[in-house]
């Protein structure tokens, strides 16, 4: 078990560094898909099958397609050579060190008495057995029932983002017909 986890974490770290180092956009996007799959596997090990499921479908599926289509629209982008600066590395190392210092006070991984596990009490699992007679998946019950308002808000955010993308990218028919004749003499 531990060997699998460590192999997985090593692969995750390698993939992340590879994405940071790669200059070629296409390869970086493909590595992002792999990265999503690896993190989905880790979520699976951490007992969150629902999230792993979503991450695999969204991160490796939709987001890769969207990035590739963006790349198709914008091109690879010219790689302007510039001298590498130490500033980003410095900022990242300092921030990372601060965060690591912060973790020293964190409860150990998987501790059953960590603050996260103690509130709310009785836990949603226990309450769900009482309230939702017949619904085994606590995550769904929690998502749609206990936190129903929250999920309504999130759905609205998805709708709003979709509308915004359409407003930015979609050409209205008038504009499309106006641009078409100018390119009409090219072979289709």
């Amino acid at each position: 078990m531990n060997i699998i986890v460590f192999a997985l974490l090593a692969l995750l770290a390698i993939t992340a560094v590879a994405i940071a180092r790669l200059r070629e956009l296409w390869a970086a996007i493909m590595f992002t898909g792999i990265y999503s799959f690896l993190s989905a596997s880790w979520m699976m090990i951490l007992d969150a099958p629902d999230v792993a499921f979503t991450e695999a479908a969204v991160g490796a599926g939709i987001s890769t397609v969207l990035m590739l289509s963006t790349m198709a629209l914008t091109g690879q982008g010219e790689d302007i050579p510039r001298k590498s600066s130490w500033m980003p590395i410095l900022i990242v190392v300092v921030t990372g060190a601060t965060l690591v210092y912060g973790t020293l006070d964190m409860p150990a991984l998987g501790a059953p008495d960590a603050p996260v596990q103690l509130y709310p009490s009785p836990s949603y699992v226990e309450r769900s057995v009482e309230d939702m007679h017949g619904l085994p998946n606590v995550v769904t019950a929690l998502l749609a029932s206990y936190r129903g308002y929250d999920t309504l808000g999130e759905t609205t955010v998805v709708l709003t983002a979709g509308i915004a993308v359409l407003l930015i990218l979609r050409r209205d028919p008038k504009e499309a017909s106006a641009t078409e004749p100018s390119a009409g003499d090219e072979p289709a």
Binding site: V116, V139, L142, V157
Partner: peptide
């Protein structure tokens, strides 16, 4: 059981994230 609450929060966050 592991805690379902983080799963729920992240589930919605992933889909909002892709949007």
């Amino acid at each position: 059981y592991s805690n379902p609450l983080p799963s729920v929060l992240m589930l919605t966050a992933i889909v909002v994230g892709i949007a």
